[in-house]
Nucleic acid binder design. Sequence first.
DNA 1: CTCTCCCT
Length: 836
Amino acid sequence: MTPFLPITPLLPDILASLAERPRLVLEAPPGAGKTTQVPLALLDATWLAGGRIVMLEPRRIAARAAAAYMAAQLGEQVGETVGYRIRFESRVGPRTRIEVVTEGILGRMIQQDPSLEGIGAILFDEFHERHLAGDLGAALALDVQSGLRPDLRLLVMSATLDGERIARWLDAPRLSSPGRSFPVSITHSPVRPQETIEQHLVRTVRQALREHPGDVLAFLPGRREIERARSMLEKQGDDLEVVALHGELSLAEQQLALSPADAGVRRVVLATNVAESSVTLPGIRAVVDAGLAREPRFDPPSGFTRLETVNISQASADQRAGRAGRVAEGAAYRLWPQSRRLEPSRTAEIEQAELSGLALELAGWGSDNLPWLDAPPAGAMGQARDLLRRLGALDEASAITRLGRDMLALGATPRLAAAALRAAPERRALVADLLALTEARSPLRGEQGRTDDFRQRVAALHLWRDAGARGARAGSADIGALAAIEKASAGWRRRLEIRSSASGVPDSHAVGDLLVHAFPDRVARRDEGQPMRYQLANGRGARLHEASALLGEPWLVILDLRLDARDSLVFAAAPFDPEVLERDHADRFVTERVMRWDDERQIAEAFEERRFDALVMSRKAIPLRGDDAVPALLAGIRARGIGSLPWSDNARRLRARIGALRVWRPELHLPDVADATLLQSLESWLSSYLSGKRRLEALQAAELSEALSSMLDYEQRRALDVHAPEELKVPSGMTRRLEYGTRDDDPGAPPVLAVKLQELFGLADTPRVGDGRMPVMLHLLSPAGRPIQVTQDLAGFWNRTYPEVKKELKGRYPRHPWPDDPWTAAATHRAKPRGT
DNA sequence: CTCTCCCT
């Protein structure tokens, strides 16, 4: 029984291509039949020589379904010619030739047998989804093919996107198949001012219901938006069934959403990305797409992953629209302007995800020089290796340890694998529960702040397990979720070779003490002053929800939190006994001498601190030695500003002169003495003058001047004396002070020479400084010292202004000389004696 | 006002 599907005419070409070249890219849209037809078609290929075919699927449901469909086509049971393997579940037999496996399984197969003996071909289905495990599997398979197994066939199957890039990467030919779907018309529905995305969506859903028959599928980024849109739609009281569909619903609830609606009732399904590929929906004729999705972004500094709401890719938008054309012609309404440019496809997971699992696989493989389509980013890899070293999976040279090999074989995330393998034998039953619970969504329902104590999840599981036979309820927990968690826990117990399962309420620290081995970088201690706040070992801060069940716990190991720049919120944590740190993580403790500036007391202090990473476990004051306090004093100056130094007039003037001459004569390369620069370079110019001091007050004004002066070499100091002098000799024979600018933003302003005009008789031109480049700014004064004129042009003053000034002031100051010819008159700084 | 989807 071989059905005719769009892919069918292409099957001979696929066989022929793989006979000639060992790699091939096959582009085929959903509905073409590639998943079920291609593996069967390859079975009799001569080059396969009786070997097995392995096909990777990104989802367990898809792996099971593909195997079942193919077995039925052969008229067999699953486990005969066609079988599948997913975690904790294997249906393969001695005659099995086609193994459908989930992406993570291939890593285990290759690590166990790098030659992949008996396997003739590997098929990567839905490769365009670009999951971490799929990318890794493909890179490892290519490595195997180029070394040990040149005869191995690799077939990458992808929806029609980026096929060309994939083909170039593989150096492989490309074949394309049509799909089977109906045309979908696209409409862009513009947003109105002040409209929320839910309002926009609801308005457009109503438009779709008016314009098209059948049911409507609407895409929103998350559960919160779905709930809001649902209540808006329900309020409108139409003869309408509104159904939510997101991953947090139990499987039973999801089934309900997918079952056919009652006759005569039109249905609106409000969905997240679940509906993009994982489930089939009957009766959908119109799609309304908000164009948004939530994607995880790893934050390397904190080691946590957070969700971001982002615009979807073009591929994703097409996939969503395609959902309207599965049964008949359909329509898609896009809630973004047609002018918006979408990325062609989603960023590969390997570029954004936490990579400790990948790094461990690579360490096990012994090489990270693989033929990647997109290489893992170096920063995230570095962070991943740091974590693996911390967990004991890698040694100092980043080579895999014995524990690392065991972790790899266990097949759990590196964090939980480390905790599982370090646990005492009598704790392993509890470890199996923790493995299952940390990988699952919380089974607890109810007010959110009160479910952050991870022990509650363990208790709910145990309560349900202990009372299961009697059919008792598990408090406010989701029974379906608990059943799934118990299934996973049983799988871990088998793998860990434990017979019994844990029960009852574990003692208060049992859970946390185990989890410390998984999250040693996230142990946290309560702030003494603020009991809701905690300091993490990685240096970050976090706070508890006001209604938290964990209030009052002095020590927490934090599993999950919402990342925030200032105050992250704890979602899941467990208390533990700090003794565990001393006993099992002794190597992470350091004892250090620490200097600190006490701003209140204006004094440098020395401590001996014992720390676990960023957590100060104990601190005692110790006496200061020699220059110990210098860094703390410098920190104190930085905290209080450059003005906190003991600036004398002398020091201020020196600094202004240096700043001015630096502008006038750049070729002298004088140091920059602006506030910010001086603060930055304190170490180089001030340190030695702080030696042996403990308080800032101990720095003398003279020492500051000396420190400034010592920034200049001999030549520079001489140039400063000559070209930016402190004072000038004027024709009266007196020396008068030059006032240099003190403004940081204009250090090269001309210096001011304030002088009575009688003292300048005989001087034709403005005096200059800066090697003749800068005329001084004259403040010409009356005999009484009152300002008459500000000018840099003395000749112009004598010529134009002096005659006026003379007329005006001669009567007022009769005992002072007012000659007609100031150029030749004798300068003087005093008045004529009385009576002459 | 807590969280898309998956997997060894």
